[in-house]
Nucleic acid binder design. Structure first.
Lengths: 339, 339
DNA sequence: TGCCTCTATGTAAACCTTTACATCATTCAT
DNA sequence: ATGAATGATGTAAAGGTTTACATAGAGGCA
């Protein structure tokens, strides 16, 4: 059942009539061997079907050419699209990507660290928004492996970050609503813990301030970014009976909750209420009404993050400590002109 | 920047005052060392912060405890949910998962084989529906590494398969439509190349036959499983003017296309037409009308596939050459009673 | 010619484990 | 008391690379 024994560099060397050092050089530093020798080696490689044993190489070179990606939920669509970018860029540079699904479980996070500490991975991409449990708790911050955070920045640690410009995106989104004549705009999804939510709320505030619209605290509703929280938020507003003309939701999932709630109350959307999301996840174009939202450049986020990490791995100073990519306004049918 | 030198087994041995062999045994076969010795070793490990170098171990043991997952599209939501199951099961058994995004590109497939041939991965999970380009073309079939196919079986090769029971699922779906009084039921998504489509069509035929309903060839429309193909199929039926009362679509993406087309024609769904999907992808509950469909047990598919692969890796004969899991009928709002 | 430089190649160490085999002490049965 | 069996530990080889250093030959220059 197990593979038969594979050809080693010695087999190639014997067949080509040279030493193993020469074979290694012919592969890794071709200019350093004579043309004729290189030819013989190449042929011997072809004849034997030799491939370098990655384990031996990694052992010797002390690097595995692997990147560990730690994410709280691998099934999350927002994650998987970024993964494509990460993988593309990594594979282009000869790196492989390893997936760790942490489910926000401390023991799983710790467990995955063995990939780093056992030299099985050279660097780390973090989607979790915090250092893996077990790192940096004691005075070990100095020994952090090369890593970059994606989506959620890591607070209180010197970790380069790549993500969408939440502040700017939220500002643009809100300005779009304002440009359609809205002045009573609710923000759904205020949260103290979540940096992303906080930034988007800031962008919302900035846009209102810029248009000279006073902020009505009753228009700012808590929410944790789930569909359910969006539904609850909308219901709450009806209970309180302070109604906006438009809802700016912290993300599309929340927006979906708001839409569900409004549809259930048989409002005619977007005529009676406008809804704006953020993220542009896949279903956003399929809801009724289809959702106007800010699209995250997920593929590019992945690429940029991997680029940054590979710079770090190459020993360079990262060209940026923080890469913020612009979200793009996608106009669909959930926002209407008013007033 | 690079990690400082890590503690090796020699450091631990020195500190504990034993030989490296004893340290290795204390770690891997604890029963074989004296209690007192084991205690000393454990303490030395703690003091040095030692972790086994996975590369050295893999080199020596000729196995990496890594599984390579090859998928045509890592961003596909259907994939990412199965990935969760794969990862969970693998990690439970001490394996890591490596992701390869092939994009159906032959050169990328070949490229990823180096992970197998260089001992960087012990086994392979295939979502591609065919052997990676470069395998099994010449007479090398005998040397295939341990692998199992998921979702799409691999034709003409002896590869264990795990997936949903498409035939049975399609039969149940169709029977559900029949139970609601439908007798003119279209099948959208006939395809010669795709095994999945073929099996679902078979299930459809079987259900109709079972109910004594004659098959009308005009009710069977080609489609490749995309939303666009669903839209086109519906349009075609209106052009031909042979209309069903229900559409059974080969998958949810196709069903979405049909719904879009019918909504655009301002039909009242599901009163005027019923639509049935297959897969239960995330947006299916959000479309209007929300889609009645067959839910794939994605998490369990992933787990079962990994289980099977690990059996193979352990040198056991797989307990099944094919694992078919049942799809579950999810009743939502896109199917109505008729007649 | 003699010496130096340069280029091409070879030798051997190092990377860090696991494990077959050897060694030694102890226990137990005779 | 002797020998065998058992149990704990040590020694050293093997796994397949990369690479510092050594060597050898060729060519250039005085």
């Amino acid at each position: 059942m197990q593979h038969q024994k594979l050809a080693t560099i010695e087999d190639v060397a014997a067949l080509a009539g040279v030493s193993i050092a020469t074979v290694s050089r012919a592969i890794n530093e071709p200019t350093k061997v004579a043309d004729e020798t290189r030819r013989k080696v190449t042929e011997a490689i072809a004849r034997t079907g030799y491939t370098t044993n990655a384990m031996a190489r990694s052992l010797r070179m002390r690097r595995s050419n692997m990147i560990l990606i730690l994410a709280p939920d691998v099934g999350d669509p927002n994650f998987s699209n970024i993964l494509v970018g990460l993988e593309t860029e990594a594979s282009k540079r000869g790196y492989g990507v390893l997936i760790g699904n942490t489910q926000n479980d401390a023991s799983r996070e710790t467990d995955y660290l063995r990939f780093i500490s056992s030299n099985q991975a050279d660097g780390l991409i973090l989607f979790t928004g915090h250092l893996p449990y077990g790192f940096g708790q004691d005075g070990t911050e100095g020994r952090l492996p090369p890593m970059v955070a994606v989506n959620e920045p890591v607070p209180n640690a010197d970790v380069p970050f790549v993500g969408v410009d939440n502040f700017e995106g939220a500002r643009i989104a809100t300005e779009h609503l304002i440009s359609q004549g809205h002045r009573r705009i609710a923000f759904v999804g205020r949260s103290h813990g979540r940096e992303v939510n906080r930034l988007r709320e800031e962008g919302y505030r900035k846009a209102l301030a810029g248009a000279g619209i006073a902020i009505d605290p009753r228009m700012i509703i808590d929410g944790d970014g789930t569909t359910e929280s969006g539904r609850a938020a909308a219901e709450l507003m009806f209970v309180r009976d302070v109604l906006p003309t438009a809802f700016f939701c912290v993300n599309d999932a929340t927006a979906l909750g708001v839409i569900i709630s409004l549809n259930a109350r048989h409002y005619d959307l977007p005529r009676q209420f406008s809804i704006m999301g953020f993220d542009d996840i896949s279903f956003s174009s399929f809801v009724t009404p289809s959702l106007t939202t800010m699209k995250q450049p997920r593929h590019r986020i992945g690429e940029a993050a991997m680029e940054l990490l590979l710079e770090l791995l190459a020993g360079e100073k990262p060209h940026e400590q923080q890469v913020l990519l612009r979200a793009e306004l996608i106009v669909r049918n959930s926002v209407s002109r008013v007033g």
